[in-house]
Structures are given as C-alpha cells and as structure tokens.
Simulated assay, not measured.
Amino acid sequence: MKSFYLTLSILGAIIPYLFFLQFFEINGFNLAAFMSASVENHVAAGISADVLFASFVFWVFMFVQRQKGGANPLLFIVLNLTIGLSCALPAYLYAQERLGSRNPS
C-alpha cells in the first residue's frame, strides 16, 4: 500500500496544479481573484466548503493519531495548505504505513 499512497500523493499534487496554473496563467498570481473564484457560484462554493471541512477533520484526526504515536502532522498541514488535501491525505497515509512497518505491533 505504501507505493500506492505515494503514487496518489504525487498525482494529488500534479492534478490540481494543472488547473491552478491555468488560472494563474490567465489571471496572474492574484490570490484575491483565486479565492473569489473558489466561491464564484453555488457549486464551487459547495466543493470549497466540502474540501475545507474535510481538511479540518483530517487535521483533527492527525493530532489524535499523533498522541497514539502517529506521524507528525505539521508537514501534512503545510502540504494541505500549499497543495491541497488530495496530496496531503495520501502523503499522510504513506507516512503512517512507513511508521507501521518500522514499529510492528
């Protein structure tokens, strides 16, 4: 599963950035316009709210798992904020698999 999670993490970084780069190519590096576009209509706002909520749940989960010996959440929070949940979540699962293989129960 480790290599599967790693592959998903890489794809989760590349695929969203294909769209983000198109946006920035057209609009320049305008974060205000980027944030405005993320809530431009009800569909975009709903998807944005869904991803933000899922990210919050993911962060809570990581901090709970950290107390049980899980991976340090800070790198994955940075990935979540700079790339997105599509990269951060599989990267975290990859790290958890690596920790599990080093520390068998």
Rank of each mutant, 00 (worst) to 15 (best):
D50P: 05
N27L: 09
R66S: 06
M35I: 12
F23R: 02
A37C: 02
A45F: 08
R98I: 01
L79V: 04
L75Q: 10
S36E: 08
A44I: 07
G100P: 05
Q67P: 00
P104T: 00
V57K: 10
E40S: 14
F56M: 15
Y5W: 10
N27I: 02
N80I: 14
F4N: 04
E97W: 01
N72T: 04
N103M: 08
Q22N: 14
P90T: 01
G12E: 12
R66Q: 11
G100T: 02
L8N: 12
V78T: 06
G84R: 11
I14Q: 03
N41R: 07
I83C: 11
W59C: 15
G46V: 01
L93W: 01
I15H: 05
C87G: 08
I77E: 11
K68G: 01
A37D: 04
Q67F: 09
L52Y: 14
N80W: 10
A88G: 01
Y94N: 00
S101Q: 15
L6N: 06
A45S: 12
F29W: 11
V43Y: 08
G12Q: 02
S38F: 03
T82S: 09
N30E: 03
G84S: 14
Y17E: 15
A49G: 10
A32S: 13
R102D: 00
G69M: 04
M35L: 14
V51E: 09
V39L: 08
S101E: 15
K2M: 03
Q67E: 12
L75W: 08
N80E: 14
F24Y: 03
P73H: 05
I47K: 11
Q67D: 07
F19H: 15
I15M: 15
G100D: 06
G84C: 11
I10S: 01
G69E: 02
A95S: 07
F34A: 03
I15W: 07
N30V: 03
G12M: 13
F23Q: 00
S86Y: 13
L11E: 04
I47R: 09
L81S: 11
L93K: 11
N103H: 12
Q67T: 03
N41P: 00
R98K: 04
M1G: 11
V39W: 03
L52P: 08
S86C: 12
G46W: 07
K68N: 13
N27W: 03
V60A: 15
I47D: 04
F20W: 13
F63C: 10
N80T: 13
G84N: 14
S55L: 08
V60Q: 14
L81E: 09
A32R: 09
L52C: 15
S86W: 10
M35V: 11
F58L: 15
N27M: 13
L79P: 02
L89V: 06
N30G: 05
I26G: 09
